[in-house]
Design a protein around this nucleic acid. Structure first.
Lengths: 336, 336
DNA sequence: GTAATGTATGAAACGCGTTTCAGGTCAAGA
DNA sequence: TCTTGACCTGAAACGCGTTTCATACATTAC
């Protein structure tokens, strides 16, 4: 049988080596894998044969034999969102230590792409799967656990699936408290994607806090689908149009915050005097713009996820620490 | 033979299905692949058997049989650099159309990681390989072409390897001309990595231009390893320290430019009055900061690369168009 | 001197789909 | 009636490494 696409004429296989070297395939395999119990003499002959035929083992066959591929699936909505590429960076770094290659599955939040990823796991193409974000139901995901380790990067208590994340509810809560402590009660917020688990946590924390201070939850103060600088600009435009304006924003990530800050500057809106902004992530851009933000060890999350796959981490859930970095985009209304 | 790591007890194979259905494996395979010439009755029986045993084809075995994996290797230095993640985005988008999965090989510019990627190609684990950046020598890379398509994302005339890029020399040249036309002759520039092919093109264009206007090439006006916002901040600090200062910068990418612009603002340096900045890429951040930049269709590059792999594109080299976007970071010294 | 180990090697089975080849049946066309 | 071709099916080979099992010789150990 020959394959059509690429021509790869002189790909010797282990049997040809065995013939040329005058030994059995088992011996060649032993040499290949540095097994003991091969006389030095034969080892030499085999090596010569391999050299002569420019032999290189077929990895697919190798994987089939082993029942393992050293391939790790990573599902993510889009690689262009720093949050996700940071996680991938962490996964790559840690995966490197275990000789794992990464298979990227970009979903754009489409459930069917996630299902494809799960099928890769079931089909034994990948040894494990990390969801940096999830749209498929937990019930469905759980059905695949028998085919390999699946790790979630979300703050979920709904499932016994292993997961690694920061305590989003707590972090959001801390963010709210920080604003509250500085006199802000009219607080708006932005979300990356309304129906994600992490967003859900944020919404919950928000509602609890608004209840506590007897403020109504205003739908028009909640902005969905905010992920990029441009989204931030859009939010800022909206803010200008508002009759009743919030005095503070809790923002998806630093990109959105940057868009808001920059747009505000152009419009002569003073940050933080006219509007306070607190975001998440603590990326370089936040430092450059002096944006107050909640630092999240994103890369660390990716690393931990791999440790789960490798069973290095024993716990089923890991929660990473966050830290609020006060800079210059949140005002203190009491000292004003 | 059973594998150790994960337990996958009830993974039926095609032979078990054949037994249960009372047909041969060939028939099962035909059903699996929707071949004609299977009586409807048998097709049903096979489907029932598959359902009963929860059968799913083993992808590794499938790949081995086919001699093809539908896996596409992508080597890149780091996924955190927007330039590269943008290319990957394009590759992912176009690869999706051809049902290809992406295997990411992060190199951090280490040659040995690139060699590993090439070995994946030789080992038939991946069907093709895209170098979004390259550190290994062309000679070495070329040795692997018999094992599958290899595409370079660089502007090289040194090789017959297929490549897709923008004409870096021309683009850099246009950038210089743009600055020259506005009265700038003291021009500095930053590079991402001094020894890359693309950087080499930029250096070449720079030297040619300096020759033309009888300006010396000043080593201290060349900044290497500039890729991020922080690098831009660093460059700006250096600029302040200089005795003889350039009046304009041609910058690696928008991130670096952003770092420079933001740092300049804090230091009270006026852009573009005191210093002009022209960068590459035209990312969101450039628009937000009104940075003059040279737009490069990065995502498009990724798409084209996949088309090369797919042999959709017949030419061996493709050069994509760039476009200078004049915004507010380049002054006109004549009208001053 | 004999049993028990350790070393070395190959045949064959295994992991699991795909494909070729040969051999059928059955109906339409000559 | 005979040929031709479409339709259907299974045995076996193939893609390629790995691993088990059996065998055989060479040492030690007692």
């Amino acid at each position: 049988m020959k394959f059509s696409g690429k021509e790869d004429p002189n790909m010797a296989n282990i049997r040809e080596i065995a013939n040329l070297a005058g030994v059995s395939v088992s011996t060649v395999s032993r040499v290949l894998n540095n097994h003991p119990y091969v006389r030095e003499e034969k080892r030499q002959v085999v090596h010569q044969a391999m050299e002569k035929l420019d032999y290189h083992r077929n990895l697919t066959a190798f994987h089939l034999s082993k029942g393992t591929t050293n391939l790790l699936g990573v599902v993510l909505p889009s690689i262009e969102i720093p949050y996700f590429s940071n996680i991938v960076e962490g996964i790559a770094e840690e995966g490197l230590k275990h000789d794992m290659q990464l298979v990227l599955i970009q979903t754009n939040y489409h459930v069917d792409k996630e299902l494809e990823a799960l099928e890769l796991l079931r089909g034994n193409l990948i040894d494990g799967l990390i969801f940096t974000s999830r749209a498929a139901s937990l019930k469905i995901v759980k059905e695949y656990t028998s085919h390999g380790p699946i790790i979630l990067c979300e703050d979920s208590d709904q499932t016994e699936l292993p997961s690694v994340s920061i305590p989003h509810e707590k972090a959001f809560q801390d963010g709210l408290d920080y604003l509250l402590a500085r006199g802000h009660t009219d607080i708006a917020y932005t979300l990356g994607r309304r129906h994600g688990t992490n967003s859900h946590k944020r919404i919950k924390a928000y509602q609890a806090t608004m209840d506590k201070i007897n403020q109504p939850v205003r739908e028009e103060w909640i902005f969905d689908k905010c992920l990029s600088i441009e989204d931030g600009a859009r939010v800022m435009e909206s803010w200008c149009q508002m009759i009743e304006r919030p005095t503070a924003f809790l923002v998806t990530n630093d990109q959105v915050a940057a868009g808001m800050v920059l747009t505000a500057r152009e419009k002569g809106i003073r940050i933080p005097e006219d509007l306070s902004i607190l975001s998440f992530d603590n990326q370089q851009i936040a430092k450059a713009l002096h944006i107050s933000t909640i630092d999240i060890p994103i890369k660390q999350m990716g690393k931990k996820a791999v440790q789960f796959i490798q069973k290095t981490e024993k716990k089923s859930k890991v929660s990473l620490p966050f830290q609020l970095i006060g800079r210059a985009t949140v005002s203190n209304m009491f000292s004003a």
